Amino acid sequence: MTERFRALVVRKSDGDIMNVSVQELGLSDLPEGSVTIRVAYSSLNYKDALACAPNGGIVKSYPFIPGIDLSGIVMTSHDPRFTAGQPVLVTGYELGVTHFGGLSEIIRVPGDWVVPVPESLSLREAMVFGTAGFTAALAVERLEQHGIRPDDGPVLVTGASGGVGSISVAMLAKLGYEVTAASGKSQLADTLRNLGAAHVVSRQGWQPERPRALDKQRWAAVIDVCGGDILAAALASTRYGGAVAAAGLTAGGQLPTSVYPFILRGIALYGIDSVYASAAHRTRLWSRMADEWKFIAQDNEWIHEISLQDVPEYTARMLEGQTWGRALVHVAAED
């Protein structure tokens, strides 16, 4: 096969100067894998923005194609679980980290990474959810497993204007939880309420002026995508026996807290990892998204569809905290 295709390629010079641009490649440029996919959509996540940055700490070797998720159609498969023409998606594993990612019109991956797209979801809808949606679903499920119920009290979602946060708000609201959405972007209050938030607060509106080991008990549970001081404040203000699901680090990887929330209030801190979830877990949660939460992927108010050429500028703004909602990348040259 001599087919040529376009991909977003990241190159780095000895002087740490990054070049991120759309280039033409051939199939021989792709890494090994048992399933070759013609990509329709990808999405942009914070990890993708880091992959396009000089000191992002994500990419180890160059040139590289970023993109930690994709949806598309199988072109060829040496894995008996998948056939040509089948709609599939890929999130997590090493995609877009050490293995060429989804910001490419054609990609080749191991069969163990591939998940069939549920019949009721389009390729576009699958990537409106993407890694962010799958991560949000994992976090919501973890709170349910802890025993948090809608009548237990309000649930805080931090970083609510981002991908994981906004989808978490909508998922929790659909399940009947009273959701407080915390965001630094006050202009998005109406959007967050339309997604289901009962209350929208600023960072200053719920965090104390000075960090406290224990604060007033406010939240039955929390989904946090920020880390750092924000996660510490969330832990300090979670009610006795509550749970906090940590799913991101946009505010930093450090956690300046103490043992007090854990030993005096019995709070549980759950780490949410979407990268290495089992195939069975993925299939089950994607089916749930396609069933209970499909409406989220059909609400275009918070979805920004862009092209491959738009990605460098968008990821730069993402690192500066100037983006919100979901960035859906229409990768295919034609549908």
Rank of each mutant, 00 (worst) to 15 (best):
S42W: 02
G57M: 14
A40W: 00
T191M: 13
R288C: 10
L172M: 09
E209C: 00
R6K: 12
A170D: 01
A181P: 08
L30G: 05
H146P: 00
L175V: 10
S287R: 05
C226E: 09
T180R: 01
D29E: 06
L27G: 10
E292K: 11
L27T: 12
G184R: 02
I148G: 02
V331I: 14
L25C: 08
R11I: 09
S258W: 00
G101C: 12
E94I: 10
I106G: 09
Q145K: 14
W293R: 11
G92C: 12
G147M: 10
L156H: 03
I106R: 06
P66H: 10
R212C: 02
A7S: 13
E292S: 15
A245F: 14
C52Y: 10
A7Q: 07
L156G: 04
E320C: 07
S120G: 07
L138E: 07
V109G: 11
E105H: 05
P261K: 01
P66S: 11
E209Y: 03
V244I: 06
A49P: 11
R239L: 08
Q187N: 08
L214F: 02
L285Q: 04
G133K: 00
S43L: 04
Q86D: 03
D273R: 13
E94A: 15
G163P: 03
L319A: 08
V259K: 00
P80A: 02
L103E: 13
E141F: 13
L89Q: 11
V115R: 07
R326S: 11
Q298E: 14
D152C: 06
G57D: 09
L70A: 11
L121N: 11
G56T: 14
R212Y: 04
V155G: 06
A236F: 00
E292Q: 14
L70D: 06
Y240T: 13
L319Y: 06
G252E: 04
C52K: 10
E125T: 13
Y46W: 13
M318T: 14
V222G: 01
E32I: 06
G253N: 06
W302I: 15
L269F: 02
E119G: 15
E119M: 13
V74P: 06
T98C: 00
I303M: 10
I223P: 11
A220R: 03
P87F: 01
P54T: 11
D14N: 07
W324Q: 14
F5N: 09
T36R: 14
V97N: 09
S161N: 08
V225R: 04
L231Q: 03
Y314I: 15
S161Q: 05
Y260T: 02
D224E: 09
L319R: 06
K47Y: 10
T191I: 13
G56I: 15
I303P: 04
L264Q: 03
F64C: 01
R4M: 04
K294P: 12
V225W: 01
Y177P: 13
L8K: 10
A277L: 07
I65N: 09
V88W: 01
E178F: 00
S61A: 06
L25E: 05
R124W: 07
P31C: 01
L30M: 08
K47H: 14
K185W: 00
P154T: 04
M289Y: 03
S258F: 00
V128F: 00
R212A: 01
D29Y: 01
Y177K: 02
S28L: 07
I65C: 08
V225N: 07
V115N: 13
H78V: 13
R108G: 06
S122L: 05
V22I: 12
T2S: 11
A213L: 03
S13D: 11
